[in-house]
Simulated assay, not measured.
Amino acid sequence: MNISTSSSPFTLAVCAEMIFRELPVLERVKRISGLGFQVEIWDWTKHDIDALANSGATFSSMTGYVKGTLADSAGADELLRTAAESVEVAKRLGIPRLNLHGTGLNDEGLPVKPCQQITGAMWLKARDTLERLADLGEQHGVTFVLENLNTDVDHPGVPFARLEDVLALVESVNRPSLRIMLDIYHAQIGEGNLTELIRRCGPYIGEVQVADVPGRCEPGTGEINYPAIAKVLNDIGFRGTVGLEGWASSHDDLALDRFRAAFSF
């Protein structure tokens, strides 16, 4: 199959936190939207929600909590509390998916509470917390998506970071309001064997995020064969959102062109 810029079977989105960074966030959002992409944001507390709501952009996802953790009681209650606040913001912006991690992350992407060993009790508590989040999502018509991360380069000490762990948790809850935010960049660093991982996660994928390895820049700048990834996603019948969550290797517009080309047939 030849990859071209003709059209994509997927909805393409771009993270406004990582592209056009010389511009104010609102201008980034408008620029990305004007180029035909949906827009991802991270921590909503750092943005002017009224301005974003009036930007004319369509948003794909945002971080679905402000504080909290999955696997301890106090942290889980805080996660649910701030997730409920996040849902209300998501509804104002029309955002369908709210992103989760194995624990709260600071501004540098490091865990607020690092964890080197996951106990059986933590697995059970994490599953219970995700059930509660699925209830919240179902109540409000949004989907929570649990993201896999890598602990070797970007997020050391994050529990439930491996895609294998994320799949096990989401599969055990098995609710439409809880799905996987499948991050290909993190999966390549942490596990590899991407084709098999994608096929196994297929029924539970809520959204896909991409960047190349090494460097976390746009497709075509590293070792991942993104046209092949696009084909696998197409072959398993995925028709959802693929988001660029990576840096531009040189020029932002070129990065977006390369991203679009990698996922267009």
Rank of each mutant, 00 (worst) to 15 (best):
L80H: 04
P24L: 11
A13W: 04
G220Q: 13
M122N: 02
N234S: 14
D152N: 07
K30R: 15
V242N: 04
P159T: 01
A57T: 11
L26C: 05
D212N: 00
M1G: 14
M122E: 15
A84K: 14
R199P: 04
T195Y: 08
A168T: 11
S264R: 10
D43I: 01
N148V: 09
K231L: 11
I189W: 08
G36S: 06
L35V: 00
Y204S: 06
I19N: 08
D77C: 07
S86L: 06
Q209T: 12
H101S: 12
E191D: 08
C201T: 00
T119S: 15
D72E: 15
L178G: 07
S55F: 12
H186V: 15
P24M: 11
D135H: 14
H140C: 01
R81S: 02
R97A: 05
L124M: 07
G202F: 13
E147F: 09
L136D: 03
V112A: 13
G64F: 09
A76R: 14
S8M: 12
F265L: 11
S172L: 12
I224E: 06
G75H: 10
V208L: 06
A84Y: 01
S7G: 05
N225P: 00
L244I: 12
V142W: 12
G34D: 03
M62A: 04
G246V: 08
L12T: 04
P24T: 04
V210H: 06
I95H: 10
H155W: 13
G202D: 12
L163K: 03
I205D: 07
F144S: 10
G102H: 13
G36K: 06
A71F: 14
S55R: 07
D212K: 00
I49N: 03
G246I: 11
E191G: 02
Y226V: 01
I95R: 08
G240H: 12
C15S: 15
T82H: 00
E207F: 03
A161W: 09
E27N: 11
C201E: 03
V89E: 08
R127K: 15
L146N: 04
A262H: 03
N148K: 04
R162Q: 13
E17G: 06
I236D: 05
L79H: 09
I19Y: 08
T45Y: 11
L136Y: 01
L124P: 00
V87P: 01
R199S: 05
V242S: 04
L194G: 09
V173G: 05
T221G: 04
W123N: 05
P96C: 09
Y185T: 05
D252C: 09
A83D: 02
D183T: 12
K231Q: 14
V213R: 02
L79P: 10
